[in-house]
Design a protein around this nucleic acid. Structure first.
Lengths: 226, 226
DNA sequence: AATCATTTGTGCGTATGTATG
DNA sequence: ACATACATACGCACAAATGAT
């Protein structure tokens, strides 16, 4: 019999309690000592099981007299970070190219921009105007606000790691002043289209914008394809 | 002084070695004993650090004389499973709706179908024909093959968890025979368009297909919106 | 076939951090 | 300010598994 280690079995059981929602976010799990008795294992085993859940951001542990292990609040930002870390590994092993990342970004962001044109709130419109006013340093933020305005958190969760990977991989500082002027112009046009609620026009303009970005990004790639 | 626990610091350092590719997949890390000396901590600390990486599928540990901790092979399927688990948590806490999942699927799969029409290999075409011939049980497989034919692994990685969530959440058995006949017809039409290499037509047909699917899926939702 | 060396798995004791009286 | 209670963090010893000799 090749049964899995006890710490994995304990983790599996605890994972069920947390991910099913049976234990609400913020709720405290039993202390390590009590979990030892409940599962009939030592504290080492219980602790290693908790570490497995901690790595998946299902629980957080705090030490001290009011401490313990608590069910983590589900946050989309953490999911993006995890996904980004996974993509980093794929990139490091050349299982993923910059072109494929840029393409996936285009697939998601073009229709998302269209949705944003019809769903954006007034405050989101203000945020977009602020990003355009702030210029270069807020260009990524412009795209993030537009994604948020799409009203679909999944799109945000899936795009954010793509931004992260591109940010880490590209030498954006080496881009020319002309490039940044073009980006600024594109963003201003996008803003006007979103203000007008032009769904088709916004998507088309985003398509153009990302296509021209991709051309430059390919040249800024730290490890260009041969 | 509010420094993080030692096991997190050790894990952070080891994570850098693995996710940067400095340690190749399949390579063995130093044994627990050696890691203790290197970081000046006890085995408990080292082991808990390893558990953090194990939960993120960065390493696998094997016991015995030839055992040890090895850098895991990067696999896209694993990333999809992790992402799916994260989405399950969001769904369990009503931070995500079925409509939003269906929308995200449409955003990704419509343009991906267009790409597949121009990039599919002959063997992928055969797989699609086989799926259509197999009928109802292969309908999800049809979509997966089409995504693979898009040539972008990111699109596959991001769509697969959506399928998983929908599969778990919907009562597909309750769908009518008419529904399945319509799905079959849609797939046959998609196959013809892909065979013809009609990029725009394939995307448009996929748009129609997913839109009609969404209407039925909303009614099959286990927990309908109020 | 049996013994052994090496590795991870498990149990338990102690140290340290944290809030409270 | 200090003592104290209780939580997790850490360290060490032994058991079990696995492949080699």
């Amino acid at each position: 019999m090749a049964s899995r280690p006890a710490y994995q079995q304990v983790a599996e059981h605890l994972r069920g309690l947390v991910s099913s929602g049976e234990r609400a976010p913020g709720e405290r799990l039993a202390g390590e000592a009590e979990l030892c008795e409940r599962y009939g294992v030592s504290r080492s085993t219980v602790r290693e099981a908790i570490r497995l859940l901690e790595a998946q951001h299902l629980v957080v542990t705090i030490r001290g007299t009011t401490g313990g292990t608590f069910v983590a609040q589900p946050e989309t930002g953490r999911i993006s970070l995890d996904l980004g870390a996974s993509l980093d590994v794929l990139i490091a092993h050349d299982a993923l190219t910059v072109d494929q990342i840029l393409e996936a970004r285009r697939l998601l962001e073009v229709p998302a921009a269209g949705l944003a044109a019809e769903r954006r709130s007034d405050s989101q419109l203000d945020e977009l105007r602020q990003c355009v006013a702030d210029g270069r340093d807020a260009n990524e933020q412009f795209h993030k606000v537009l994604l948020a305005a799409s009203g679909n958190p999944l799109v945000e969760v899936m795009c954010e790691p793509l931004f992260g990977v591109l940010r880490a991989r590209l030498h954006r500082d080496e881009a020319s002043a002309d490039f940044w002027a073009a980006v600024d112009g594109d963003h201003r046009r996008l803003l006007e289209l979103v203000e007008a609620g032009d769904v088709v026009g916004t998507a088309a303009e985003m398509e153009r914008h990302l296509t021209s970005l991709a051309d430059v990004y390919r040249q800024l790639d730290r490890a260009p394809a041969k």
